[in-house]
Amino acid sequence: MSSPEPPGRSRASAIGEGTSAGLLFLAGPLLGYFLGRWMGGRFGWGEAPAWIGGGLGLAAAFVNFFRLAGRLNR
């Protein structure tokens, strides 16, 4: 009862792509947040860049996710 594999993709590459797409949901917002916070401190813009950076990081994670999910569904 093994599950069908998407044609043309090895198990390792599927695991790699899925893992990286999942981890980006954690890494993206964190990276964006800390980068924004550093910029806010460096240029005296306050807290706003940190949250904008976090939001952009999350958006990047979603863009990457949809790109991969679209490819998997084809």
Binding site: T19, F25, F65, L68
Partner: peptide, 21 residues
């Protein structure tokens, strides 16, 4: 925490199928 982040992919895959397909 890292494993939970990875799980987001397959849970969101079902969510994407429901809302964007």
């Amino acid at each position: 925490v890292l494993a939970s982040a990875v799980s987001l992919f397959y849970y969101f895959r079902i969510a994407a199928a429901m809302f964007f397909t």
